[in-house]
Structures are given as C-alpha cells and as structure tokens.
Design a protein around this nucleic acid. Structure first.
Length: 270
DNA sequence: CTACGAACCTGCCTGC
DNA sequence: TGCAGGCAGGTTCGTA
C-alpha cells in the first residue's frame, strides 16, 4: 500500500491526534521487523512528548524531545489511530499509547517496515544519501536532465533510484512514463531536457493528485477501513497489461524490469 | 561509480 | 480441497 501519497496521508492522519502529547507507554509485540526494533525503545520514549510528525521520502519522522523515531511502512505496513478500543490482532506489532489515551497501532504482515531511534535523523544512514523530495522545487526537469547525463540505465530504474529522487515507487514510475510518452527502457542519458521537464511535471501531478484523493481515506482514518479508493480508477498503465491503451487502443505491454512489473504502450511510448 | 540479483517476510491468487 | 508456485505497492546489501 504505501507509496509516498499513502505515507503522507498517514502522516496527516496521525499528526493532529498525537502532536504535543506525552508517551505513556510503547508496547512491542514483535520486534522482528526489517531491522530489530531496539529493545530499549520503550524506556527511551517514556514520558517524552511527540513534538512533530514529519515525513522524509517514505519515512515518517516522529520527533520527540530527545530524538526521533524513524518509521517505515515497508510494503504492507499501516499506522492507525485506534479509537474503538479494539484489541490488537495478528501482525499488530507495535502500539504507542499517549497519556490522554490516544493509541497508535502499527500493523505490518510482511514485516518489511521498521521502527528505529536516532538522535540525529538527518545524518542517519537511511536518510543521509536520499535525493530531493519530488514535490519540492529542487526536483525539476533540469535537475533530472543534469543527473541523467551519460547514464545508460533505463529511465524507469533511474526514476525509481532514491539517490535521484525519493518517493517514486513502481506504480507512479509506470504512470508518469506513460503520461509523458517515454519508453521505460530508454537509456536515462538519452532523454531530452524537454521530455524530462514533462516527466517531472507528470511525477508531481500524479503524486499530489493521489495525496489529494488520499484525503478521502484520511476522513475515515480513525475508522477501521483505510483502503485507498483512488487506485483502480485513476491508473492508466499500472495493472492494465494486455488491456487497450487509452490513447491508441493497442494492447499495453507488460514486462519485468529489475524484478518489477512494468507496463507501457510500445506505440505511444518511445 | 554503476548495475544487477538476492534477500528480508506473509498473504493471496492461479493452476494442477 | 490441497498444495506448489508465482507474485505483491519497498529498500538494502553483496558482488561484479
């Protein structure tokens, strides 16, 4: 579930419930995530106030008085505000209880997510080498074009490289390339400045549009549902292999590139 | 530096 | 029904 819009939606969902509140208790039911959850995290957090819930790439940064918890949702994680007093279920690995009774619950079936502690998150190895945020001014067509000089790697792999730009996952890479008419296998260094400008705009549009639609999810965030409704409707390429291209009606190709499903139109994308 | 494959996990769907 | 196999929205790590 978590592409960047989902993570941002999660951040916006939890922030108003948690910011400014002190931790009553952190409960770790299963510490076996992508990396082990630090054993001393409950002691580290006890009594500390959550000052701000931020996001960098697909990481949530829970900034407390004396340090920051880096939360990643992996491929199957979710973080919910629990208001119905329900009991934890299978894969509910971590609970963060605030002293006013607000409860954050982390669920992650595949355990690809993480909860890590850092006193200097900006210098943390997981964050230090990340490229710019896709919705920032720093991310532009000129930037992409400059970074791509001499690169033979397929433009899709290039776009999904976190050192180039963060937060463009498989779905949005497929969508942005389709919208721009760029073949995913084209060498990154052989895409013109003009087309990188279009690609950059397509990435921004797709991501911010999905965040806006995530707002629908946001409203019932405290309820149990949480499934994003925007997926099936707005996707033009991803998940449509073999189906007619919305531009030319020819069937879309589906291949694997770097072990990721890649969908494109061999007529419209060059 | 770049590029590629393997690895970390569970759940779900397909086909025999 | 059961079971093997493949696949999944992410990211790091090791090796060439």
């Amino acid at each position: 579930m978590p592409e960047l819009p989902e993570v941002e939606t999660t951040r916006r969902g939890i922030a108003p419930h948690c910011e400014g509140k002190a931790v009553a208790r952190l409960t770790i039911r299963d510490s076996r995530l992508r990396w082990p959850v630090p054993d001393d995290l409950p002691e580290l957090l006890a009594g500390q106030t959550l000052r701000q819930a931020d996001r960098r790439a697909k990481y949530l940064l829970l900034r407390f008085d004396h340090g920051t918890v880096l939360v990643h949702l992996g491929m199957s994680g979710s973080l919910r505000v629990i208001t119905d007093g329900s009991s934890p279920l299978k894969h509910d690995h971590i609970e963060l209880l605030f002293n006013d009774g607000t409860l954050l619950r982390f669920n992650d079936p595949r355990r690809f997510g993480c909860w890590l502690w850092s006193t200097e998150p900006d210098r943390h190895i997981l964050l230090a080498n990340l490229g710019p945020e896709p919705l920032s001014g720093e991310f532009s067509g000129a930037y992409l074009h400059r970074k791509a000089q001499g690169r033979k790697t397929p433009v899709k792999s290039f776009l999904m490289d976190n050192r180039i730009v963060v937060g463009v996952g498989n779905i949005y890479a497929n969508e942005a390339l389709f919208k721009t008419g760029i073949h995913p296998n084209r060498a990154a260094g052989r895409v013109s400045a003009g087309r990188y400008h279009q690609l950059c705009e397509a990435v921004k549009e797709t991501l911010s549009g999905a965040i806006l639609m995530g707002g629908t999810t946001l409203r019932d965030f405290v309820n149990s549902d949480g499934k994003p409704g925007y997926f099936a409707q707005s996707l033009q390429a991803y998940g449509r292999g073999g189906l007619p291209c919305f531009n030319c009606q020819r069937p879309l190709k589906e291949i694997r590139m770097n072990q990721r499903t890649t969908v494109y139109c061999s007529h419209c994308q060059r």
